[in-house]
Write a protein that binds this DNA or RNA. Sequence first.
DNA 1: CCCTAATAGTTGAACGCTCAACTTTGGAGG
DNA 2: CCTCCAAAGTTGAGCGTTCAACTATTAGGG
Lengths: 173, 173
Amino acid sequence: MDGARWLDDDEQRTWRAFLWTSRLLNEALDRQLQQDAGMPHAYYMILAMLSESPGRTLAMSELARTVCSSPSRLSHAVKRLEERGWVRRAKHPEDRRTTLAELTDEGFAVLAAAAPGHVEAVRRHLFDPLTRAESAHLRDLLFTLLAGLADDPSAPAPPQPERSRRRRSPEEP
Amino acid sequence: MDGARWLDDDEQRTWRAFLWTSRLLNEALDRQLQQDAGMPHAYYMILAMLSESPGRTLAMSELARTVCSSPSRLSHAVKRLEERGWVRRAKHPEDRRTTLAELTDEGFAVLAAAAPGHVEAVRRHLFDPLTRAESAHLRDLLFTLLAGLADDPSAPAPPQPERSRRRRSPEEP
DNA sequence: CCCTAATAGTTGAACGCTCAACTTTGGAGG
DNA sequence: CCTCCAAAGTTGAGCGTTCAACTATTAGGG
C-alpha cells in the first residue's frame, strides 16, 4: 500500500467531482430519453450516428467505433432496435462477414421526434452553466484525457499473439 | 425541432468528448477492480465510504448520499456485500426505520488489498495526463456543472405534494 | 389522541451490459 | 490448394441498475 502515491485532498475532490458529474449527467440524459422517447441514451446514439451516415447505413464494426461500444453491446442493442422496427440488418454483398445496419424511416421519425428534447437537455446540463471559453477549455482537457485512454494497455485487446508482431525488447533473449 | 438551438460543431465535439471520456474512464476502472478485486467500482466506493466513517458505520440514506446512489441501488448492493461478509446490517436502536451499514473486518481487509491498484489506475488515467494546474481547472469546471446538476427539477424527486408546502405563485388563483 | 403524511428502506421484474464462448467468412503462407 | 489465423458478429448466462410497488416507523396537525 506504500508503493503508490495516495490521492491528496485536491485530487480526491477532483476525482469525486468527475465521478459525480459523469454519473448525474448520464442519469439525467437517460431519464429524459427514457421518459420522452422510450429508449436509453445508448440507443439514441446508435440511431443518431446511423442518421448521419451515407445511406443511413453503417457496418456493425464501424458503428461500434463511432458510438464507442463493444461489439457485443452493439449487437444486443441493434437486435432490440430491429425488433422495434427502427433499424434493419443486412449482410454486406461483397464481404459476407460484415453486417450492415440501416436506419429505417420509422427509426428516423422516432429519432427526429426525440432529438429536440435531448438537445435541450444536453444544453441545459452541460452548456448553459458554462461560458463559451469554459466549455472550450473543458473540451481541451477532455481531449487530453481521451488521448491517454485511447491507448490503454489494459483495454480488452485482441489476445496477445504468442510470438509474432511484438517488437522484441532488449531484455528478452 | 426549431424552437431549440442545435449544437454547433464545437459543442458537438465537447459533448462527445465528455461522453467518451466518462465512459472509457468508468470502464477502465470497472475492469481493473473487477479483475483485481472481484467487485465493480460502485461496490468499492461503498466500502471506501464506510471505511472513512466513524465506527465504519453509516445509515443507508447517508451512505446513499455520499456515494451518489439511489436507495434501491444501494439496497441491492449492500445485500450482495452482506452475502460476501464484507458489510453487516443492523437496525438503528432509536429510529427503527433506519438501517445501519457497518464495514466488517473482512470487508476492510478486502478494501485495503484493492486500494493500491485502484488508486494507481485513477492516477494513471486521470492525473498523470494532466498538469497540476490543468487538474485544478478541471475540478473547477466540474464543480460548476455539479451545481447545475444538483438542483435538477427533472431528478426523481419525491412526488409533488398535491396542495401543501408549495409556495403559491402569483399566477395561481 | 388519532389520522395523515413524510421518512427510511426493501423487493421483484424488466432491462441493458459484460464476459466468455462460438460461428462464419476472408486472407496468407507453405 | 490447404491449412491456419485473423476479422466480424452473435449468443447466452450472470450481474447490476431502474422503476414501480410495498412495508414499517416516526412526526405533525386537528
